[in-house]
Computed example of a mutant assay.
Amino acid sequence: MKILFDETFTSNDGKQRSRNIWYGYADISVEGMYGKSIKLTEDFMDQLCDIIKKDLSTNKGNAPTETNWYFYGSAVTQDAIGDNIRPTIMVREKAGMFITNFNISDHDFAVNIDAILLFKANLEKRLSSH
């Protein structure tokens, strides 16, 4: 993965600081019988956790009130009406709590939703334990 942007935004009243970090080209797609689909492995979870822990360790000084990560997949898939979908994993840390969300194609929803939900739950649990 390659870092694309790392930006911090402060609210007008100065009370909220949101750090947003975008990473590109995560290798999480595999070719399947009906097209590309997302493949989430333990090694990939390790990589995400390492990146997030490293990024959080650089939040010294004027620390943000929340940090958001956007991990874009390296490949795109078409949905049923022809739109291109790039799998994206988003993670937010706020007050030591982690929330993850996935943008996926309808194909990934049909064939991978159980694995995606399990990965999501395990990632949140693992991040919260650090």
Rank of each mutant, 00 (worst) to 15 (best):
Ala95Val: 13
Ser128His: 08
Met33Glu: 13
Gly61Thr: 11
Ser57Gly: 01
Gly24Phe: 03
Glu66Arg: 15
Ile28Asn: 08
Leu56Asp: 02
Trp22Thr: 14
Arg126Glu: 13
Ala26Phe: 15
Gly73Ala: 09
Pro64Met: 07
Arg19Gln: 03
Phe9Asp: 04
Ser37Trp: 12
Phe9Ser: 02
Asn20Phe: 05
Ser37Ala: 09
Val91Met: 00
Met97Thr: 14
Met45Phe: 06
Val111Lys: 02
Tyr72Ala: 11
Tyr70Pro: 02
Lys60Ala: 07
Ala121Trp: 03
Ala121His: 07
Thr65Gly: 12
Glu93Ala: 10
Lys39Cys: 15
Leu4Val: 15
Asp83Asn: 08
Asn84Arg: 11
Val76Arg: 03
Ser11Asp: 04
Ile21Ala: 08
Asp6Lys: 04
His107Cys: 01
Thr67Ser: 06
Ile99His: 12
Thr100Ser: 04
Trp22Gly: 15
Asp55Met: 05
Asn59Tyr: 09
Asp114Tyr: 11
Gly82Val: 11
Leu4Ala: 15
Ile113Trp: 14
Gln16Asn: 13
Lys53His: 14
Leu118Tyr: 10
Met1Glu: 13
Ile116Tyr: 02
Pro87Val: 07
Ile38Ala: 04
Thr100Val: 11
Glu93Lys: 06
Arg19Thr: 00
Tyr25Trp: 14
Met97Glu: 15
Gly96Cys: 08
His130Asp: 09
Ser105Glu: 00
Arg92Ile: 07
Ser105Arg: 01
Gly73His: 08
Gly32Pro: 03
Trp69Gly: 02
Met45Pro: 01
Leu56Lys: 07
Gly24Arg: 06
Met97Asp: 15
Ser18Lys: 08
Ile51Gln: 12
Ser29His: 09
Lys15Ala: 12
Tyr34Ser: 12
Trp69Tyr: 06
Phe102Gln: 06
Ser129Phe: 14
Phe44Thr: 01
Tyr72Pro: 01
Ser129Asn: 07
Thr10Asn: 00
Asp83Glu: 11
Asn59Thr: 12
Ser37His: 11
Ile38Val: 05
Asp106Arg: 03
Lys54Trp: 02
Ile21Asn: 04
Val111Gln: 00
Leu118Lys: 12
Ser129Tyr: 11
Glu124His: 13
Leu56Ser: 05
Asp106His: 01
Leu40Ile: 07
Phe71His: 07
Phe119Asp: 01
Thr8Trp: 00
Gly24Lys: 05
Ser105Tyr: 02
Ser18Gly: 13
Ala63Pro: 11
Arg19Gly: 00
Met45Ser: 01
Ile104Arg: 08
Gly82Trp: 10
Leu40Gly: 04
Asp6His: 01
Leu117Ile: 09
Gly96Ala: 09
Ile21Arg: 01
Lys53Trp: 10
Glu93Leu: 13
Asn62Lys: 15
Glu31Trp: 10
Val76Phe: 09
Lys39Ile: 06
Ile28Gln: 04
Thr88Cys: 07
Asp50Val: 02
Asn101Thr: 00
Phe9Lys: 01
Leu123Ala: 02
Val76Gln: 08
Thr10Cys: 00
Lys36Trp: 06
Gly96Trp: 15
Gly96Asp: 12
Phe9Ala: 04
Tyr70Glu: 14
Val30Ala: 13
Asp108Ala: 13
